[in-house]
Amino acid sequence: MDHSHHHGDMSHGDMDHGDHDMGDACGHGHGHAMVFHSSVCQEILFSGWMTTNALELFGSAVAIFFAGVLYEGLKYFREALHARASAATGDSRVNITKSECGNNGPCGGTAVVKYTMLSSGHVVQTLLHFLQSTASYTLMLVFMTYNVWLCLALVLGLAVGYFFFGWRKNNVVDVNEHCQ
């Protein structure tokens, strides 16, 4: 596009667009919608994951729904591993002190578990934290497509996942949640 001359009364139709990518039939290539919309045409996370019809959008929504359920399962799994370590008070990899539990003896389910830096439990928790962080921010990016159907699939998946796994958790509020 040559902008070196005076535009004057030149309308958009008079502009030479040259080799610019103007998008496909769904409008891909025109940028990202910053408002909620219900279009079936949606680019999701990667340039290769595009929906162009309702069936493709539905399939993507189902995949995102299950990703939300699995995300809640991962959060529960991390807590269950932590609880198992809390029960292993005789394990040399876990250090629970009386002052951390109070002066009334064993902590029960409220133990403060301190792994050593190179313990297998800490390495596993670190890897699971990496997975949880990655999943959390990836799901946030899905929500930021602002596609109503994908957003609805995601929050329903998180709700169903919480229904399946949340009742077994020891904490109602997860202080390690990344995107809340």
Rank of each mutant, 00 (worst) to 15 (best):
M1D: 02
D2N: 15
S4A: 05
S4R: 08
H5C: 02
H5R: 12
H6Q: 12
H7G: 06
H7R: 10
H7W: 08
G8M: 08
M10D: 14
H12S: 06
G13F: 11
D14F: 06
D14T: 02
M15D: 03
H17Q: 02
D19V: 01
H20P: 00
D21P: 00
G23T: 00
D24T: 05
A25W: 09
C26P: 02
G27M: 04
G27Y: 09
H28N: 09
G29F: 07
H30A: 11
H30N: 08
V35H: 15
H37Y: 09
S38W: 10
V40K: 05
V40I: 05
C41Y: 09
E43N: 09
E43S: 11
S47L: 09
N53V: 12
A54M: 08
A54K: 13
E56A: 14
G59P: 00
S60N: 08
V62L: 13
V62N: 02
A63Q: 03
I64Y: 08
F65E: 03
A67G: 06
G68W: 07
L70M: 09
L70V: 10
L70S: 09
Y71K: 09
E72G: 03
E72V: 04
E72D: 03
L74Y: 02
R78S: 06
R78N: 12
L81T: 00
L81R: 14
H82M: 15
A85D: 09
A85Y: 08
D91T: 03
V94W: 06
T97F: 15
T97M: 12
K98D: 05
K98W: 05
S99I: 14
S99F: 15
C101W: 10
G102C: 08
G102A: 10
N103S: 13
N104F: 15
C107I: 04
V112T: 15
V113T: 04
K114H: 14
K114Y: 01
Y115E: 06
T116V: 01
L118P: 00
S119Q: 03
G121T: 07
H122I: 00
H122G: 00
V123T: 05
V124A: 14
Q125G: 00
Q125H: 14
L127G: 08
L127M: 06
L131P: 00
Q132E: 11
S133M: 13
T134P: 01
S136R: 08
S136T: 07
M144N: 06
Y146V: 02
N147T: 07
N147E: 03
V148K: 13
L152M: 11
A153L: 03
L154K: 03
L156P: 04
A159V: 04
V160N: 01
V160F: 12
F163Y: 15
F164Y: 15
W167T: 12
N171M: 07
N171K: 15
V172K: 14
V172G: 05
V173I: 14
V173Q: 04
H178G: 03
H178E: 01
Q180S: 08
Q180G: 10
